[in-house]
């Protein structure tokens, strides 16, 4: 009886919190893994699968140093506050709908956009690149090596003065 009271409270609180959140989860839908999305199952409305190209660290450095590219960090805000690639903007892939409005002004459609996340095993950078593509950005690349490869090759990491 007591356990069912706790469970009932949890269901009510969970559903209410989810309902009022800015990006609620579709509780009654099946979970769609992002791996499936990256295999092209999330085609655009015109039937074209979203394909995102990858970029290596040397090309990334060249594009960023020449001012032709903008780096976007796809990890969570907490991860970003612990350190990021110099000049990168934070846009967590899983909070895209909420954060995109805040950073939209910083994104220049003329520039190349390069997304990255923790390492080659994470998928947030690919997910973010697809979301940006759907939002109208064309020139997007994914830096698969991510922060791990970047730091392993002794490149500098920026740490914000104030954690977000």
């Amino acid at each position: 009886m007591q356990a069912s009271i706790i469970l009932a409270m949890s269901i009510i609180a969970g559903v209410a919190y989810n309902g009022f959140s800015e990006s609620p989860l579709p509780i009654f839908k099946k979970y769609v893994p992002v791996e499936a999305e990256s295999r092209g199952e999330d085609d655009l409305s015109d039937g074209q699968p979203v394909h995102v190209s990858e970029i290596d660290i040397d090309t990334l450095k060249y594009l960023v140093e020449s001012g032709e590219a903008l780096l976007i960090d796809a990890r969570t805000g907490d991860d970003f506050s612990r350190g990021y690639l110099p000049g990168a903007v934070s846009l967590p892939a899983y909070e895209f709908d909420r954060v995109f409005k805040e950073v939209e002004g910083l994104l220049d459609e003329e520039k190349t956009i390069i997304t990255y996340c923790s390492s080659v095993t994470c998928i947030d950078s690919t997910l973010l690149a697809k979301k940006l593509y759907r939002s109208g950005f064309q020139n997007i690349f994914v830096y698969r090596g991510g922060l791990k490869e970047w730091t392993e090759l002794d490149n500098p990491v920026e740490i914000p003065h104030e954690s977000k």
Partner: peptide, 24 residues
């Protein structure tokens, strides 16, 4: 989902509900 133990339809309800069970 990455635990690969739960059916796909249960992933979202668990994500919404389980943390509140822990909290309460």
């Amino acid at each position: 989902y990455n635990y690969r133990l739960f059916p796909d339809f249960s992933v979202y309800p668990l994500a919404v509900f389980l943390p509140w069970v822990e909290m309460f």
